[in-house]
C-alpha cells in the first residue's frame, strides 16, 4: 500500500524541515535555540502521527512533549543560565571526528537495513481504527497491557517523588526572622551598608534610564544607583558622558538661537530666557547640587 498523494506532499514538505531543525539541535550555539528546534521537530512528528492514522498519539505528542517536556527543558535552561555556552576545548582527543564518523555510520547502517529489508504489504489501520483510534488503543492498553500500565503508573509516582527529593534543599541554619535581619543591617553600618533603600538611577534633561548613575549632593556620581546586574555586565553609562552630551546640545541650541536673534527683533528676549532655563536644567545637577540641599527638584540629585 502506498500513501496518498496528499500524504506524500505533506511528508516531503515536513521531512526536510524536520531534518533541518534536528540539525539545528546539533549545531546551535545556544541551548535555547536548540530547544526551539527540538520543539519544531516534535510538532512535525505530531502532524505525521495524525497523517499516519494515529490521531490520539498526535494529540498526546503535542500535549506531553511540546507542552510539558520541552517547557520543563526551558525552565531548567532559565535556572541554569540561558547563555551557558559550550566549551570548545576537547577533553578527549579527536572526539569530534569520531562522533561525526559514528553518526554518519549509524545513518548509513540504518538506512541500509531499511532499504534491504522486505516489508510485508502494508495493511493500514482502517480496520483496526473502525471503532475510532482512541477506543482501539484503549482496548489494547487496558486488555493486553494492564500490568505494564500499572507498572508505568508506579514509575510515574516514583519519578515525581524523585524530582521532589532531588531538588529539595535541606536548610542548614535557622531561618532568619525580621528582627535578626534588621539587627544584621544595623551591625553592618560600619562596613558601609546603608539602612535606607539604594538611590534610584539618575534623571537628566535628555536621559532617564536605568543605566545612568544619579549624582550625589556633592555632584559625584553614585555607582550603586545603577542596578548591580548592569554594573557587572559593564553596560553602565558614565554621568560625565551624559552631561557632556547635554552640554553639546545646549551649546548647539545657543548657537541656533543666536543665529535667529537678529532677524526678528522681539524674539531676542524670549530665547535668552529659554537658553537660561535649559542650560540651568542640565548642568544644574552638577553645580546647583553642591551648595544647596539634596532635595533639589532636579532628578539628577538623589
Amino acid at each position: 500500500m502506498t500513501a496518498s498523494g496528499a500524504e506524500a506532499a505533506l511528508f516531503w514538505v515536513l521531512a526536510p524541515l524536520m531534518v533541518l531543525a534536528a540539525l539545528g539541535l546539533l549545531f546551535a550555539r545556544k541551548a535555547v535555540h536548540a530547544a526551539v528546534c527540538v520543539m519544531f521537530v516534535m510538532v512535525g512528528l505530531a502532524i505525521l502521527y495524525v497523517a499516519q492514522e494515529a490521531p490520539f498519539l498526535g494529540v498526546v505528542q503535542v500535549v506531553v512533549y511540546t507542552g510539558a517536556v520541552m517547557m520543563l527543558f526551558l525552565f531548567v535552561l532559565m535556572l541554569v543560565g540561558v547563555d551557558a555556552a559550550d566549551s570548545l576545548t576537547e577533553t578527549i582527543k579527536g572526539q569530534r571526528w569520531v562522533g561525526v564518523l559514528l553518526g554518519l555510520g549509524l545513518v548509513v547502517v540504518l538506512l541500509g537495513v531499511i532499504a534491504q529489508a522486505t516489508f510485508p504489504p502494508a495493511v493500514g489501520l482502517a480496520e483496526a481504527n473502525a471503532v475510532t483510534n482512541p477506543v482501539a488503543l484503549a482496548r489494547v492498553l487496558l486488555g493486553d497491557y494492564v500490568l505494564a500500565m500499572e507498572v508505568v503508573g508506579v514509575l510515574l509516582v516514583t519519578a515525581a517523588l524523585a524530582g521532589l527529593v532531588l531538588t529539595h534543599r535541606r536548610r542548614l541554619s535557622v531561618r532568619p526572622t525580621q528582627r535578626v535581619l534588621a539587627a544584621a543591617r544595623v551591625a553592618a553600618l560600619p562596613q558601609g551598608r546603608t539602612l535606607t533603600p539604594l538611590p534610584a538611577p539618575g534623571v537628566y534633561a535628555q536621559n532617564n534610564a536605568m543605566d545612568t548613575p544619579a549624582l550625589g549632593p556633592d555632584g559625584e556620581p553614585l555607582p550603586h544607583s545603577v542596578p548591580r546586574v548592569l554594573r557587572i555586565r559593564g553596560q553602565e553609562r558614565s554621568a560625565t558622558a551624559v552631561l557632556a552630551e547635554e552640554e553639546t546640545l545646549v551649546a548647539r541650541d545657543d548657537l541656533r538661537l543666536i543665529g535667529v536673534g537678529p532677524t526678528s527683533g522681539e524674539a531676542v528676549p524670549a530665547p535668552v530666557g529659554l537658553v537660561e532655563t535649559t542650560s540651568g536644567a542640565s548642568p544644574g545637577s552638577t553645580t546647583g547640587g553642591t551648595g544647596t540641599t539634596g532635595e533639589d527638584e532636579d532628578g539628577g540629585v538623589r
Partner: peptide
C-alpha cells in the same frame, strides 16, 4: 535520520 542526529 532523526535517530542518528540525536545520537550524534
Amino acid at each position: 535520520i532523526l535517530f542518528a542526529i540525536g545520537a550524534t
